[in-house]
Design a protein around this nucleic acid. Structure first.
Lengths: 154, 154
DNA sequence: AAAGATTGAACACTCAATCTTG
DNA sequence: CAAGATTGAGTGTTCAATCTTT
């Protein structure tokens, strides 16, 4: 009986995790779109660049910061450059690389979007949870990512 | 000081939630692809159909079961029909609608994939967590989705 | 008009192959 | 050859518009 209830618990928790994803992300993304005029991908890239000290950053570094593969980032930067949100600037040290920086419009948009999105996350994600639940989420994520290093699905 | 630590907790928890998403899903999807030859979208649709009693189901019902909008599902069914994973069958009651069912190949694939994917989820997601943590995830999801009904980001 | 479903365009992501510079 | 980045094709997702049947 103990095994059976553990199994049900596992399935329920997995579905719970997915229900958070699927219920929370769409309204957040829609809100970002309507209030700030940018997509989630554009938001993540602009936020990543803003974390850089000099308001510009090399793509390989940016890909680490936001956890994307280079091919994904390269496509996204191209689309955003075409839209006038970011611009590429030559890199003096290494001719293979370059810097990505904001356009004036891109900087204005992300400065506007950051507090708006943070407020929305707070309202929809954090507000209904207790301190203990927030702490537990951090612990859970740590357990899962640690275990991931060890396991490899063969 | 209390407000400050609550704010940090909220940001940490939000990042923790995302780190689960971004660390767990890619290996699971890759595993599904390599072991079963299908994508995540194909898996979700096939699993949804298998939950139907008669091994076939109407699209509008399927869209509720898996939580997708109809346009997304319609595109996906078309691609899967072209690949020979599912087939459309006329619906006698209502000429606007139809039934989606498995092809022989589609049924074989999902019967093979279900236990494989469940095992992978168990190994990467559930195994490192305690019973209490799994229960907490269910409670957290419930709090968030309940709150979502009340809030609307104006 | 409402319900069930589809379509085409725009945007996003992944894979494998490629190109250039170090 | 390694590293940094790009490209093109294939797949997936969203939005708004559309079409048919009820």
């Amino acid at each position: 009986v103990a095994d059976k209830s553990r199994e049900k618990l596992e399935v329920d928790a997995w579905e719970a995790f997915h229900s958070i994803r699927t219920s929370l992300l769409p309204p957040l993304v829609r809100h970002l779109n309507e209030q700030c005029g940018i997509s989630e991908a554009e938001y993540l890239v602009l936020r990543g660049i803003r974390q850089a000290t000099g308001l510009e950053i090399r793509p390989s570094r940016l890909s680490e910061v936001i956890g994307w593969e280079m091919d994904r980032l390269s496509h996204q930067i191209s689309r955003m450059e075409a839209k006038g949100l970011v611009k590429r600037r030559a890199c003096p040290d290494d001719a293979r690389s370059f810097f990505v920086g904001f356009t004036d419009n891109g900087l204005e948009i992300i400065n506007n979007a950051l507090p708006i999105q943070m407020g929305a996350v707070r309202k929809l994600f954090a507000q209904p949870l207790t301190d203990a639940q927030l702490e537990e989420l951090v612990a859970i994520a740590h357990s899962i990512t640690s275990n991931l290093q060890a396991e490899n699905l063969s």
